Simulated assay, not measured.
Amino acid sequence: MNLSLNWITLRVRDLEASLNFYHGILKLPLQRRFESRGKQIAMLGREEQPKLELIQGNDPALKPECGVSVGFEVESLNDAMEYLQSLGIPVARGPIAPNPRLRFFYVLDPDGFEVQLAEHSKE
């Protein structure tokens, strides 16, 4: 069996607030938006990468306390922190440097899910 990651789903309370965060602030491209079985759904991400699927509803399959986080690579951790803080989005945890080649921090999305932004050094 040869598997590749297709998407990760987050069930959100307010799709517009989540789209503002993931598309408006984090700049993830909005690939498509549609309705299925009465639920509003948005798929975000770059063409060649796995997608983040946001489903609006009041029956979350995952709650923020479950320990799941969504991680993204950034070119500059310092620039990402500065940008988010300028928009009033506080750092929830970090920055953390578990080894010389990796640094990351977390912010919270509108539903309280942790979003990790990480910078890997080339050396």
Rank of each mutant, 00 (worst) to 15 (best):
M1T: 11
M1G: 09
L3T: 08
S4A: 15
S4G: 09
L5K: 10
N6E: 07
N6S: 13
N6T: 11
W7N: 14
I8F: 12
I8M: 12
I8H: 06
L10Y: 09
L10Q: 03
R11A: 02
V12L: 08
R13P: 00
R13D: 13
D14R: 12
D14V: 07
E16V: 14
A17C: 11
A17K: 13
S18V: 03
N20I: 01
F21G: 06
F21V: 04
Y22R: 09
G24M: 09
G24D: 06
L26A: 04
L26K: 04
K27L: 14
K27R: 15
L28R: 00
P29G: 12
Q31E: 11
Q31W: 02
Q31R: 14
R33I: 04
F34Q: 12
S36Q: 14
R37I: 05
R37G: 06
R37A: 11
G38Q: 10
Q40G: 09
M43G: 01
M43Y: 09
G45P: 02
G45D: 05
E47G: 05
E48S: 01
E48L: 02
Q49F: 07
Q49N: 08
L52W: 00
L52T: 03
L54S: 10
L54K: 00
I55A: 12
I55G: 01
Q56K: 11
Q56T: 02
G57W: 04
N58K: 07
D59V: 10
P60T: 15
P60F: 15
A61D: 10
A61M: 08
A61G: 12
P64R: 05
P64G: 03
E65M: 03
E65K: 08
V68T: 13
S69T: 05
V70P: 01
V70I: 15
V70G: 00
E73K: 10
V74Q: 01
V74S: 00
E75D: 13
S76L: 11
S76N: 07
S76P: 03
L77N: 05
N78W: 08
D79N: 12
E82C: 09
E82H: 12
S86G: 00
S86Q: 05
L87I: 11
G88N: 08
I89E: 02
R93C: 04
P95K: 03
I96A: 10
A97M: 07
A97V: 09
P98L: 15
P98H: 15
P100G: 13
R101T: 10
R103G: 11
F104S: 06
F105D: 00
V107G: 05
L108C: 03
L108N: 04
L108P: 05
P110K: 05
D111A: 07
G112Y: 02
F113V: 01
V115A: 03
L117C: 06
L117Q: 07
L117V: 14
A118T: 13
E119C: 02
H120L: 11
H120N: 14
S121D: 05
S121Q: 11
S121T: 15
K122L: 12
E123D: 14
E123M: 05
